[in-house]
Nucleic acid binder design. Sequence first.
DNA 1: GGACGTCCTATGTGAGAACG
DNA 2: CGTTCTCACATAGGACGTCC
Length: 340
Amino acid sequence: MGRIRFTLAEVSKMEEVLRDLNAMPKRPAIQKLTADFNASPDRSGDDKVPVQYNQVHTWFQNRRYKQKRRGERPPAQVKKMLPTGAEAQHPASYWVHSSSPPNSESHSGNSSSDGHLVQLEAKSPRNGAWYDVAAIQSCRFSETGDQEVQVWFSGFWAEEEEWINVCKSLRLRSLPCVARECVDVLPGDLILCYQDGKEQALYFDAHVLEVERRTHDIRGCLCSFLVRYDHDHSEEIVPLRKVCRRPSADVNINIVIDHSLAEQKAKKSRKRMDMNPDKVTMVPSPPNQGGPYDMAAPLLIMPDSTHRDSIADEQMGDIEAPPKGEATSKTHGDKMNVGA
DNA sequence: GGACGTCCTATGTGAGAACG
DNA sequence: CGTTCTCACATAGGACGTCC
C-alpha cells in the first residue's frame, strides 16, 4: 500500500468523527468516509491518489493510540475550562437542597424553590488531584458505610469514571480568581492551586503561607502567593491566575435518588437509546423500582448533615449497598495525567 | 546541504470475541 | 477447536522543518 498524506479537511473530518464517537468507528462508517474523501476534488482528479479503506482505518487506529499515549482526551483536557460539548450533552443530574439562598458565586445553573443546581469538583483517588464533575452516574455505599458516587470528570472519556467518597472527596467547585479578588486570598487560606509537574499539570489543595502584594496595572494582578501543597508539602510561589478560591459557604454534600425525576430521566434515556444504545448508563435502583437496575436516575445532593434524619435518610434507606464484590473502586491508569 | 528531531503513516504482533 | 475479524499496542521508516 502506497503512503498517502491526508489533507487538512480529511483530518478535520476524521477528528470530528472520533470526537463524536469516542470510539473506533465501525466498518460502514469508515467506508462512507473513504467514499466521501474520494468524491472530493482533492481525490477525484486524474492525477490524484484515491484514499483506501485501510488507510482511513489505520489513521483512526493510530490517532486513538496517540491520544491515549499522550493522555489526551477530547474535547477538553484540563479542568476550569469552559463547558465542553460532552458536558453539555450530559449535564450533572444532581441538586442541592438548601433553606438559605444559594451563594451566587458558588451556585450556578437553574434553580428552583427547593433545589439549586450546583457545580462540583471531585478528588481522584488515583492521584489526589481535583477535577470538575461533569455528571454523577450512580450511587452506592462502601464496606465502611460511606456514601460513594460514580462521577464522570469534565472533559474526560465517559469510560473513565471513578468512584468517589462523597464526604471526603466531593465538594462545591472552586472558583478561579479575578484580579480584584486577590485581596480575598489570605495567609492560612485553603485554596485550589494549579501545579505544573514534569509530565502533568493538575489542581491540588494547598494552603497560602505568604502573600506579596503588588500594585495592579493594565496586566491585572501582579501579586504573588507562597503556597504549600497539601499532597506533597512542596512550596511554590504562584501568580493569582493559578489560584482558585474555595466557596465562602461550603456545604456537606449528601446524595439521594430522586424518584419523582427518575421516570422523566428514564424516558429521555430510552429515547437516547434508540439513537445510540452504546451510551446508556445503568444505575442501581431501589428494590421498589422493579428489577435490579433501572435507567439513570437523577440524584439529589443534601447540603447539611442535619438533614440526614429527614428526607435524605428516608430515600437513602431504599438504596441497597452493592455486593462486596462490586465495592472495589475502579481507577484508571496513567490516562488521567494531563499534559502541561 | 547534511545532520538531527519530530510528526505522520504503514506494518507487525498478540489478545479477545464471534462464528462455524 | 480452528478460523476470521477487530482492536490495542509497538515500532519502522518516510516526510518535513530547523539548525549549523
